[in-house]
Design a binder for these strands. Structure first.
Lengths: 240, 240
DNA sequence: AGCCGGGAAAACATCGGATGTCTGAACCCA
DNA sequence: TGGGTTCAGACATCCGATGTTTTCCCGGCT
């Protein structure tokens, strides 16, 4: 096992044993390196990995802190999987996404709060208003789409499910889908489907909510299959 | 954005653009650091993170290679989530696991090969033989359990689904479940449920397979709920 | 001709130190 | 007492040196 793995597993073990708790500030690099028996450079490699995994939060000039360790945060790096795996064949990913979001809709139907339902309704109203105007703000519509699905996911009351949905239905996948959808004027159909989902949620009907969500996502999947292969190079170009 | 993130995103971008393909050997650290405009140390921090994420494979004395980038490999580090999140409350994780495995069983019913069915049957036979002996090899039984579920997952023909199931139903979670299960002599019930699942798969009946799997996992969940909170007695609160 | 072992070279692994930069808080002055 | 300033702490980055592992070539042996 490399020194880096030693560091990662060491910190992981200490967290599991309760030595460090979420929100805690870790000892300074020098002391931590000493207590793990590695040099500061090796320690930093390990800490960097932990930081990318979302387990610790490193703040320059301040210190290193354990994150809250909640599922969405820890599942965030899974976006890599979506980017890489979805390259040639997004169908597998979307199959899983449909499975997850359908279950979320089913669970949310009995657990969602009235406030959340009102909020979701306002989002759809705003989407309807934007759709009526001539220069449609597609960026905003996409945000509303994501926010709507997020509300449902959150109110399934299962942080693990939320984390997975966030990772699988994040901006990357949506962005690729969007062009194919809005070009055909499918905004309207998408909006109608969203309304149907909301209606089922308001009725607190789990099976209806699940079915409406399934119908919605199957529609998205079919739009996806039509276009062959969209290789777009979006640069999250790093600065200087 | 820190240099480390620059490295991670830089490599990620190059992979997505096709500069590097799975299995490719990357340039040596010195050249790669130069082309990314960072020092070798910073590059190594980033590469270490990529290695832990399962995106590259670093072999000392040889070089750094892009992995095959398949879903199971990329989803492996998600075991962290199970370990941390499942600490106090494994129910959320197990709910997701049940969702995933039920879908896998449903899909596998129509896709599984005769060879795989035969293999699964042999596993269950072996489990039955072990259960009959007096000094029961629980370690081997657990391996068989994992292998049985894995066969089903793999034959759902969805690598993303396989990756998620591997992460959520791995050794860590099973290990915690095991004590509560085998102490009550529930091996027999588990085995019977496995046989029922296999029977449904042999019949190529998706809904029956799904239901049998659901029944099996609900049983596991109930065993889980019975024991209140397994506070392991580890008392090494090491305070430096 | 084919096989095998040794050694050189390549490449990563690890380390220690030096310097830059940012943050937070104590401190000083009005 | 309030506000600005300074200072110590901590991470970020880079550099150079040395150890370790693997690969691969080359010479000798069968």
């Amino acid at each position: 096992m490399s020194r880096t793995d030693e560091v990662v597993n060491g910190i992981k073990r200490m967290i599991l044993e309760g030595t460090f708790k979420p929100g805690d500030r870790l000892p300074i690099e020098k002391d931590l390196a000493e207590s793990l028996g590695v040099s500061r450079g090796s320690l930093r490699e390990g800490m960097s990995a932990l930081s990318i995994l979302g387990i610790v939060n490193i703040r320059q000039g301040d210190g290193t802190y354990i994150t809250n360790l909640d599922a969405p945060q820890l599942l965030a790096p899974m976006g890599f999987v979506v980017d890489f795996q979805g390259q040639g064949d997004p169908r597998h990913i979307h199959t899983v996404r449909r499975l997850l979001e359908c279950e979320a809709a089913r669970l949310a139907a009995t657990r969602i709060t009235d406030e959340a339902l009102a909020q979701a309704g306002e989002l759809l109203d705003e989407a309807a208003r934007i759709a009526g105007r001539s220069p449609q703000d597609h960026e905003r519509i996409m945000e509303i789409d994501i926010a709507f699905h997020r509300i449902i996911a959150v109110h399934a009351d299962n942080p693990v499910l939320v984390g997975l949905i966030e990772a699988f239905a994040g901006r990357t996948l949506r962005g690729r889908l969007w062009r194919s959808l809005h070009e055909e004027g499918a905004d309207r159909r998408t909006h109608d489907e969203h309304v149907a989902i909301l209606k089922a949620l308001v009725a607190r009907d789990p099976e209806r909510a699940r079915t409406r969500m399934a119908n919605h996502l199957i529609g998205v999947e079919e739009s996806l299959q039509e276009l062959p292969d969209d290789a777009d190079t979006n640069g999250e170009a790093a600065g200087p």
